[in-house]
Computed example of a mutant assay.
Amino acid sequence: MSLISKQVPVIHSDAEALSVARELAAFFKRDSALRDRERRLPFDELELFSHTGLWGITVPKAYGGAGVSSVTLAQVIALIAAADASLGQIPQNHFYALEVLRVNGTHEQKQRLYAEVLAGERFGNALAEIGTKTAHDRTTHLAQAEHGYRITGRKFYATGALYAQRIPTSVVDDNGIQHLAFVRRDSDGLSVIDDWSGFGQRTTGSGSVVFDNVLVAAQDVIPFQSAFERPTPVGPLAQILHAAIDTGIARAAFEDALHFVRSKTRPWIDATTDIASEDPLTLKSFGHLSVRLHAAEALLERAGAFLDIAQSNTSASTVAAASIAIAEARALSTEISLAAGSTLFELAGSQATLAEHGLDRHWRNARVHTLHDPVRWKYHAVGNYYLNDANPPLRGTI
Rank of each mutant, 00 (worst) to 15 (best):
V68D: 14
S69Q: 09
S69K: 12
V71W: 09
L73V: 04
L73Q: 09
A74E: 07
V76N: 08
A78R: 14
L79G: 09
L87Q: 09
G88C: 07
Q89V: 12
P91A: 01
Q92H: 15
Q92M: 04
H94T: 06
E99R: 15
V100P: 07
V100R: 03
G105R: 14
L113N: 09
Y114A: 05
A115D: 15
A115Y: 05
E116D: 02
V117S: 00
A119F: 01
R122S: 00
R122E: 00
F123N: 05
F123V: 05
A126W: 04
A126V: 09
A128V: 11
A128M: 10
K133V: 11
K133A: 14
R138W: 06
H141N: 00
H141F: 06
H141S: 01
A143C: 07
A145C: 03
A145S: 08
H147R: 08
G148W: 10
I151T: 10
T152I: 01
G153P: 11
R154G: 14
K155C: 02
Y157S: 05
A158C: 13
T159E: 07
T159G: 12
L162S: 06
Y163L: 04
Y163E: 06
A164H: 07
A164M: 14
Q165I: 13
P168F: 07
D174G: 06
